[in-house]
Design a protein around this nucleic acid. Structure first.
Length: 559
RNA sequence: GGGCCGGUAGCUCAGUUAGGGAGAGCGUCUGACUCUUAAUCAGACGGUCGAGGGUUCAAAUCCCUUCCGGCCCGCCA
């Protein structure tokens, strides 16, 4: 590609494999995007282990969007492993970056979002400008602010069953891993300037692409006054750091730093990671597609003289129709979403085409789960949809921990109905009655299916939606007319005589007719008695599943 | 202003590489089940494929123009 041209055929997210040397002489079509990416990596004949990287700057909250960095790479890693490659998936925490401004929200060690007011904000404020790894963990548990954040991400990756190796940029500088890159950039500083200046206006003849950490105040500095390649040190002045419209004061100290006591600016650091880690593939958000990627590619080739990794741009997704924003509170974390659905459903979400911006609508999680269930059935050949089946055949095994055909999925909204009662036996019975379980269903499948009930129940409660009904253990307050009361008594007798749910459902209509009351009034009375609401699930069949004596007593309004 | 990506049914999306029948699920409506009440079953409705033009025997798909949304084009990451 043209060096000055920021557009790139690969960075656009167009990952068709188009290898002119391919034996077929034309692109191979893949149903699953990760296969196409894997083709591209394979075509480069990579050394093993193949390295797949992701990375972010530790911001304070590990939200679902950050997970693109891990999950997109995960699918490519799995495809390559299946093809017989040894694959190493790494995640770099860009933790030598300075804290530039106070985060408005943080995640506590359990992943819960808390405000700045819940921690010592003053202590954080005094650390502005220092590397994240030099700042104490606001929650006092991890080694540093950066470590706290990295722990959260690692825990989330574990929850999703993704084996990823966490790497600290700070460590990579400290242990000398980055030495060759820093030496290269600083020994060829004019060329480095020239390349970067195509992308950044601020690069002038004074610009030195290295930011020493001030030995006096600990802040990341920007003013290098001299480079000594022989002793591998730079001289610097700790000047003010401008961040947007804010200024972080420098201490004015003049000192000398080794190549390990500072950091490269991001535009060099990223390609530097590719070099020292031997990165073969890296997904990145669309914000990088037209900024860092073109410059990174250029720097890799023309400053470091390495081949950049296969890139892939992923679209951002929105949450409930709005951009993810921790400051605006429009955020969801992995632990939060795992309260509402199973890990495999979340993995499925990330297996979808990365080019498409997707909206994660929590109020319609049932749709996502239904889609997953259908995807799963397609894998087992139970869906008449060739396209979906083709994708499922490739992607499904990477989405679930284990492929097991006997698995039972209760439809999510049905699971929400089961969640109206805490009685496990009742839940199982209702699922039997609906044919989701049979005598053939293994016990483990029942156990796993029931886990979705807890998720769907949490969803119904959090969304306070049409499934948020609770079977009332205590008798609700009622105020029925004589005719309704008489009808309820009739119904109680009917139930007492022993009838199944279907019969009870029919009898509700009959009883209402006999007593010359509106059917809706009788249903309303039933919903009041059992749910303390004006509506609810299909009443007769629900009652048929409950304990008979309980139903009879409740209909008679006895405690 | 320039560039990149996206726009297909009410919702969520597949289909766009390599031109040929406009699709799925959910929702909605109707009906069935002794039954207006969210878990069953059947059927139907529903889209000028963002818009306009071009190429073609044939365009959601290729080309041009254009509208809308997101992102990049300061610094930083």
């Amino acid at each position: 590609m043209s060096d000055a041209d920021p557009s790139s055929d690969v960075a656009t997210g167009d990952y068709r494999t188009d290898d002119p040397d391919g034996p077929e002489g034309r692109p191979t079509h893949h149903a699953f995007w990760a296969d196409a990416v894997a083709d591209e990596i394979e075509a480069r004949d990579p050394e093993e282990p193949v390295v797949i990287k992701g990375g972010v700057s530790p911001s304070g909250v590990a939200h679902l969007g950050n997970f693109n960095e891990i999950m997109r790479g995960y699918f490519v890693a799995e495809v390559l492993r299946e093809r017989g490659y040894d694959v190493r998936q790494v995640f770099t925490s860009d933790d030598k970056d300075p804290l530039r401004k106070l985060p408005r929200k943080l995640a506590d060690p359990d992943g819960n979002i808390v405000g700045l007011g819940d921690v010592d904000a003053g202590a954080l404020g005094r650390n502005l400008g220092k590397p994240y790894t030099s700042i104490p963990d606001p929650f006092g548990e991890a080694d540093s602010y950066a470590a706290h954040f990295a722990n959260l991400l690692k825990a989330d990756a574990d929850r999703l069953g993704v084996p990823v190796e966490m790497l600290s940029n700070t460590d990579l500088y400290a242990d000398g891993t980055f030495d060759p890159v820093v030496e290269r950039v600083l020994s060829d500083v004019e060329n480095a300037r020239e390349v970067l200046s195509k992308y950044q206006n601020k690069v002038d003849e004074e610009y030195v692409p290295f930011n020493p950490v001030c030995e006096e105040c600990g802040k990341v500095t920007e003013t290098v006054t001299d480079i000594d390649l022989d002793s591998k040190t730079v001289d610097y002045v700790c000047t003010d750091l401008t961040v947007g419209d804010q200024t972080i004061d420098g201490c004015g100290h003049e000192g000398t730093a080794t190549f390990r006591e500072g950091k490269l600016p991001w535009r060099f650091e990223w390609p530097g990671q590719w070099q020292v880690l031997g990165v073969d593939f890296e997904p990145f958000g669309k914000d990088h597609a037209e900024g860092s990627w073109p410059s990174g590619e250029d720097i890799a080739r023309n400053v470091l003289e390495i081949e950049p990794p296969v890139p892939m741009t992923y679209e951002w997704f929105t949450l409930n129709g709005e951009a993810l924003s921790s400051s605006a509170g429009n955020i969801v974390t992995v632990p939060e979403i795992l309260e509402l659905l199973e890990p495999e459903v979340l993995r499925y979400f990330f297996s979808l085409d990365p080019r498409k911006a997707r909206n994660l609508d929590l109020s319609r999680l049932d749709q996502l789960v239904d889609d997953f269930d259908r995807f799963e059935r397609a894998y087992f050949g139970e869906v008449e949809d060739e396209t979906l089946t083709a994708v499922a055949e490739r992607a499904y095994p990477f989405v679930v921990d284990e492929v097991r055909e006997d698995r039972v999925r209760l439809p999510y909204t049905f699971a929400a109905v089961l969640g109206m009662t805490d009685d496990r036996d009742l839940r199982v019975q209702m699922a039997y009655n609906e044919g989701h379980f049979t005598d053939e269903t293994p016990e483990w499948a029942i156990e796993e299916a029931l886990e979705r009930v807890e998720k769907a129940r949490a969803w119904a409660e959090q969304m306070d939606n049409a499934y948020n009904y609770r079977l009332q253990v205590e008798m609700p307050e009622t105020d029925f007319g004589d005719d309704v009361a008489a009808a309820l008594e009739d119904l109680a007798t009917f139930v007492e005589d022993g009838h199944d749910g279907e019969e009870i459902q029919g009898e509700i209509y009959e009883t209402a007719k006999r007593h010359d009351i509106d059917v809706s009034d009788l249903f309303g009375a039933g919903y009041r008695l059992f749910f303390d609401q004006t509506q609810g699930p299909r009443l007769g069949e629900f009652l048929g599943d409950l304990d008979q004596q309980f139903v009879v007593k409740r209909l008679r309004r006895e405690e």
